[in-house]
Simulated scan of single mutants.
Amino acid sequence: MEKLNLQDDVQNCDGEDELSLFRQQWQRELEITPPPKREPDPPPAQAEPLSDEDRAKELFLRGVEMERGGKLYEAIQNYKRAMQILPDVELRLYESSDLRSETPEAESVLEEVVRNNEDPDSDDEDAVEGEDLLARLQRITARKGVLCEMQYPTKSAHMSWLPYEVVLLILRWVVSADLDAASLERAAATCRGLYVCARDADIWRSLCLRTWGIECGTPRASGHSSWRQMYIERPRLLLNGCYISKTTYLRHGENSFQDQFYRPWYLIDYYRYLRLVYTI
């Protein structure tokens, strides 16, 4: 039994010596081996400074979020700061958003309506690619000899019986004293004969003279191709309808005597209506 114990002790001593030798060798290797070099972290990318327009838009949108969340007072502060930086920030946000739908021009819509209303059995044999629609319709009406044609036979009087001069007088009545050019365009969309009559230069010249006076100039002098283009593109007051001005402001309410920390606000909206009338 004593011999076995001595052998176990010798084996334990040998195992401890090997373990200590391994630890010493491992320690020396760690000291000799240089630590891996750590690559320095890249410097943080510096954000480009926001322009005044972007900063104003950010403040305005933040105010919108606060207003939706019920934080009216904080929203007003953001609105004020945005308006101080860029007064028309709301308009620019609207123009850059998807709320503003791209609508086709009235001229292209009207031409499309007239093309759709054309009789498929009366194709123009002399049609030229890229030709102006007005010139094409004038040639068709001149060849047929009438402005309008009856779709169904009738015994009563029909507008197609009227001469060209009388049709022009009716269209002048459509324009009326309100200078309602929109109704004139709607009448022109009914058929190609009225489309030709509604493009008469005398009607649009009369509209220009009654809008800007006898010293309104000429289309060529103002850089326009026709009286109609001059009337459409030149700034003017609208007489058919009314102008509506909406004013919104905030007013402090009375504090409650029971709760001094409650700050009531009143959002006031009122409208002003202005109608302009042409007088001779």
Rank of each mutant, 00 (worst) to 15 (best):
E74F: 11
L162T: 03
E111Y: 15
E39S: 11
L86C: 12
S20D: 06
K3P: 05
P44W: 00
L72M: 10
E95V: 12
W204T: 01
A135D: 11
L72E: 08
V175T: 02
L179A: 12
V109R: 13
W212E: 13
E254S: 11
L93Y: 04
V128T: 03
S156K: 12
P219T: 01
G69V: 05
D98R: 07
S101I: 08
R68L: 14
D259M: 03
I170D: 03
P163M: 00
M83W: 10
P49M: 08
M66H: 04
I244Y: 02
D8Q: 13
M150R: 15
V175K: 02
W161G: 13
S206D: 15
E118D: 06
L168C: 04
A187T: 14
D123N: 07
D14Q: 10
Y273L: 06
P120C: 03
W26C: 14
W212I: 10
E233Q: 15
Y243D: 06
Y164W: 07
V128K: 02
L6R: 15
T211L: 08
F257L: 12
G145A: 00
P120N: 03
A135V: 06
R192E: 00
R23S: 10
S122K: 10
R81T: 15
R92E: 08
L50R: 12
N5C: 10
L137R: 05
A221G: 06
T190C: 04
R23A: 08
L276G: 04
G223V: 00
E58I: 15
Q46Y: 06
L93S: 04
L110K: 01
D98A: 07
P153V: 11
F60Y: 07
Y164S: 07
I85K: 13
A187I: 13
T248M: 14
R172S: 01
L21V: 11
A106S: 14
S225V: 01
M230I: 02
M83R: 15
V146F: 13
Q260M: 09
A182W: 08
R199C: 03
A56G: 02
D269L: 10
E31Y: 09
L171F: 12
E48G: 06
S183G: 05
F261V: 09
L137D: 01
N240A: 13
A182V: 11
P235M: 04
V175S: 00
E165P: 01
S226L: 03
F22W: 05
L93K: 04
P163G: 03
I232L: 15
G69M: 06
K155R: 14
C191R: 01
D98Q: 08
S256Q: 07
K144H: 07
L19W: 05
A182G: 09
Q24L: 08
G63M: 02
I140K: 08
Q260F: 09
P120I: 03
L72G: 06
L184E: 00
N116D: 12
R263H: 08
A157E: 14
L19E: 10
I214L: 08
Y270C: 06
E95F: 12
P235C: 02
R263W: 06
W204F: 00
